Computed example of a mutant assay.
Amino acid sequence: MSEPRYVEHGARWTALLYGPLFALLGYLAELATGTTHAIAWVLVGLGLAVITAPWVHARRRFLTVKVTDTELWQGRESLPLAEIAEVDDVGAPAGARVLGGGWSTPRKYDELPIRLTDGTVVLAWARDARALRAALGRA
């Protein structure tokens, strides 16, 4: 597998720390009042981490954008770079297919219309569409 030129993860695994940190703050607040429930806060922290793990996994699987020397990855779909004809000044026609398999671009992501070598236009997406355009232009 070639070295990625651009990578944008859908989520970071550090998000698993939010629940335990919340539980630690709750425990410290209880400690200030004098009555503590340490085992309950440990269970709350672990429970929040456990329910966050599938969310992080799904976002990393379906919302990761990666450009390598040979392919553009959008979620679980790959597009060979040899099929990309143009990334600059491409208009997005109504009904253009969205890469990655969704009906529309994900929320909080910008669209990047791409013209393929067969003349069709598809919509790529990224949080930083300029950086994705630059990475595709360099590739």
Rank of each mutant, 00 (worst) to 15 (best):
W125F: 11
A131E: 15
R107C: 06
T64Y: 01
T105P: 11
L132R: 10
L72P: 03
G91C: 03
D88F: 10
W55K: 07
T35H: 12
I84E: 08
E71C: 10
Y109I: 00
V98A: 02
P4M: 03
R60A: 01
I51C: 14
F22G: 15
T14W: 02
L132V: 09
T33H: 13
D69Y: 06
G91H: 02
R133C: 05
R60E: 09
A23T: 08
Y18P: 03
L28W: 08
V121K: 00
L112W: 07
E71A: 12
V7W: 02
G95F: 04
W41F: 04
L63H: 12
V44L: 15
A58M: 13
E8Y: 00
P80Q: 08
E111P: 09
A129W: 06
R138N: 11
K108I: 07
Y6C: 01
M1K: 08
R97Y: 10
A82W: 00
A49K: 00
L72C: 01
V98F: 04
R5E: 00
L72V: 01
V7E: 11
A134W: 12
L116H: 05
D128R: 07
R127M: 04
A126D: 03
T68D: 13
W125D: 05
P113A: 04
A124S: 09
L136C: 05
R107F: 13
D88N: 11
E3S: 11
A96I: 07
E30L: 02
E77G: 03
A124W: 06
E3I: 13
E8I: 03
V65T: 11
G75Y: 06
L16F: 04
W41Y: 08
D128F: 06
H37M: 14
V90D: 10
A96S: 12
A15G: 10
G119A: 13
A126F: 02
E77C: 04
E8M: 05
V121S: 02
